[in-house]
């Protein structure tokens, strides 16, 4: 038996919006620790990892680990039927082939249940080693979203260069080129600022199409963290307050 009740149901709606553009079908892994997912996009150059810890739910029960395969487009259709203030409960039997989403209005005067058919999905689980990254950038998530969106109107790829002075985003396209530099913010009173931790300067190039998909997670967190090392996939992480994270990995473009 799996049962998870989330008073802030809008969080689950936002989580789904943050992954459904990247992945169509995915296995959710439910365990005593929480509700998790790891999935690659169809071209296998990007990966999303989600964790919602058990203690972030008002009620959480998972008698034995289970995998629930869902079509995310269909899951999204159902979650869109929940009000933003609704409480969402997910329920599934151990041997069942459906998951039930129950929506309760805050005044408890409307209760809905939606049953989604589960599916068998073959998926590769990747082991991602813990790595010390050469550069870590924390910046306002809305700023990162804006930069990715703006640059994708000029070019298809972005080169991200991190030095001790700041982080530079550059692109080139048919119409010209663009550079945006965010300097490390030195004012201490600003909560959302650009902070750089640097072991050594690093420059990597990525497809903007994927980064733009990652920024669908912007409503989940005020800050985004980018971690980069030479010739390694970038990690783009959004922390979900008191609950877990949505983390994306993207392979860099490498010169032939």
């Amino acid at each position: 038996m799996f049962e998870a009740r989330l008073v802030q149901g809008s969080l689950l709606k936002k989580v789904l919006e943050s992954i459904k553009d990247l992945v169509t079908d995915a296995n959710f892994d439910c365990s005593q620790n929480g509700f998790a997912l790891q999935a690659m996009d169809s071209s296998h150059v990007s990966l999303v990892a989600l964790l919602l810890r058990n203690d972030g739910f008002e009620h959480y029960r998972c008698d034995r680990p289970m995998t629930m395969g869902m079509n995310l487009t269909n899951m999204s259709k159902m979650l869109k039927c929940a009000g933003n203030d609704d409480i969402i409960t997910m329920k599934a039997d151990d041997a069942g082939d459906v998951v039930t989403f129950m929506f309760e209005s805050p005044e408890q005067d409307k209760i809905s249940d939606f049953e989604l058919k589960l599916m068998d999905i073959d998926s590769e689980h990747l082991g991602i080693p813990d790595t010390e990254y050469a550069a870590t950038v924390k910046m306002p998530s809305a700023e990162f979203q804006r930069i990715c969106r703006d640059l994708s109107s000029i070019g298809d790829t972005v080169t991200i260069s991190v030095s001790k002075d700041g982080v530079k985003f550059s692109t080139t396209g048919d119409i010209g080129q663009a550079n945006i530099t965010c300097r490390q913010n030195t004012s201490v009173d600003k909560e959302e600022q650009t902070v750089i931790e640097l072991q050594e300067p690093v420059t990597l190039t990525f497809a903007l199409r994927y980064l733009n998909s990652f920024t669908k997670a912007t409503p989940l967190a005020p800050t985004v963290q980018l971690q980069m090392s030479k010739e390694l996939p970038v990690v783009v992480q959004y922390l979900i307050a008191d609950m877990g994270y949505v983390r994306y990995y993207l392979a860099p473009k490498i010169e032939d």
């Binding site: 296998h44 590769e124 990747l126 790829t157 490498i254």
Partner: peptide, 14 residues
């Protein structure tokens, strides 16, 4: 030109 490797070449498959 530039190429993009699969993530499976960076991480190991479980």
């Amino acid at each position: 030109g530039s190429a993009q490797k699969s993530l499976t070449s960076f991480f190991f498959t479980k």
